[in-house]
């Protein structure tokens, strides 16, 4: 591996690089802290391994099966108070830490949910989960739990509504313009290794180059023939973009 490859790898995995550096520094400073941290991390890691695959399987299935209309009617801009309450309920009956909620809510957003309902689901997922309430009542007492619940639910809805006013759907979805939608579709077909064999930094960049006609599907080395065919099909369905270049 040469220096350039390493630079690219670090650039694509900034947080991982930072974490590794932090751990190396700690190992030099105090091996005890290093191993304690690893032990602590392994607890979180176990939770992640238990929950994330299921979360991603469900989001994938929702993406394939649930229609845009259904999501829009339930969580869209016009879903009103009912949509907000369903959002609170959905967040309440969830499992896993908040980072597991990001992929779920992102899928809903892409399928037509409003920004405010996304925030409501995220917040409810974080603070008023039903299993969490049981633990809370056990340790903090029932009055504490109930008071917090009663105050928190309206607060969550408030945060949702305000965020919805400040951020628009279009700003959030990478697939808001026609070209973005195309990029998104291609990225889903591309292998997603971000290997750089095609000379582009990431699969996202490759997708852009494919659309503008600069690159040919054959530049992608890890893609199987079947995937290259699919890429060609997607590109052909948008002939205008290809002619533009």
């Amino acid at each position: 591996m040469n220096i350039e490859d390493l630079k690219g790898l670090v650039k694509n995995n900034k947080i991982a690089a930072f974490t590794i550096c932090a751990y190396v520094a700690v190992l030099v400073y105090s091996p005890t802290i290093f191993f304690d941290s690893l032990k602590m991390t392994s607890i979180y890691f176990r939770e992640m391994v238990e929950i994330l695959p299921a979360v991603f399987i469900i989001t994938g299935l929702v993406e394939v099966w649930v229609s845009r209309e259904t999501i829009m009617n339930t969580f869209g801009e016009d879903s009103g108070m009912k949509g907000r309450l369903i959002s609170v309920l959905m967040g309440s009956f969830s499992a896993g830490p908040i980072y597991a909620a990001f992929p779920v809510t992102y899928t809903l957003l892409k399928k037509g949910s409003s920004v405010s309902n996304i925030v409501i689901i995220l917040s409810a997922w974080a603070v008023v989960k039903v299993p969490m309430l049981f633990v809370e009542a056990q340790f903090m007492g029932l009055p504490f739990m109930l008071t917090r619940y009663v105050i928190t639910v309206p607060a969550i809805i408030g945060i949702g509504v305000v965020t919805g006013k400040l951020v628009s759907r279009e700003q959030l979805i990478r697939g808001s313009t026609e070209e973005d939608i195309l990029v998104e579709r291609l990225v889903q077909v591309l292998p997603g290794h971000n290997c750089g064999a095609c000379s582009y930094q990431s699969c996202h960049e490759t997708a852009k180059a494919l659309i503008s006609g600069i690159a040919d599907p054959s530049v992608c080395l890890p893609a199987e023939d079947e995937e290259k065919e699919e890429i060609k099909k997607i590109l052909e369905s948008h002939p205008k973009k290809q002619k533009a270049k």
């Binding site: 995995n13 991982a16 930072f18 932090a22 751990y23 802290i33 690893l38 602590m40």
Partner: peptide, 17 residues
């Protein structure tokens, strides 16, 4: 995945420190 694992490792470090 890589990002989440990195962040979990940071949390582990943070809570140990």
């Amino acid at each position: 995945g890589v990002e989440i694992i990195s962040i979990l490792a940071l949390i582990g470090l943070f809570l140990t420190l």
